[in-house]
């Protein structure tokens, strides 16, 4: 585990750390990955035809329009403007 990998993971995870925090995270993640390496000790191949937890298509509901939440309810956990979510400007 090195700082470059931590930077890459922070990018994928959309997280920020200070330089000092990164050093600690690097040490912790190194120890965690060492534990995860246990799985490399066994020779096994995943057979995705045998995954019994897959959802049966017969159990899926029909793709039909149905009443949903009101806009007021959906916006109730934010500070909306004119009935819209507000985000920073994305295009110049």
């Amino acid at each position: 585990m090195d700082i470059k990998t931590i930077d890459h993971l922070c990018e994928l995870s959309k997280l920020n750390y200070s330089d000092e925090e990164k050093q600690q995270v690097m040490r912790e993640m190194g120890a965690i990955i060492e534990l995860m390496d246990t799985v490399k000790q066994i020779d096994l191949t995943y057979d995705d035809t045998k995954d019994f937890n897959s959802i049966a298509f017969s159990q899926l509901r029909r793709d039909e329009a149905a009443p949903s939440f009101s806009p007021e309810k959906l916006l109730s956990n934010t500070d909306p403007e004119d009935g819209c979510y507000v985000v920073p400007k994305m295009v110049e």
């Binding site: 993971l9 995270v25 965690i32 799985v39 066994i42 096994l44 191949t45 995943y46 045998k50």
Partner: peptide, 29 residues
Amino acid sequence: KRRILLGNYALSSGYYDAYYRKALALKQL
């Protein structure tokens, strides 16, 4: 945050087969 970093590590290019799919194989075992 640690769990998110670990998850993205296991799913990222170059590690997916060695970690995530191996874990799924262990699930079957």
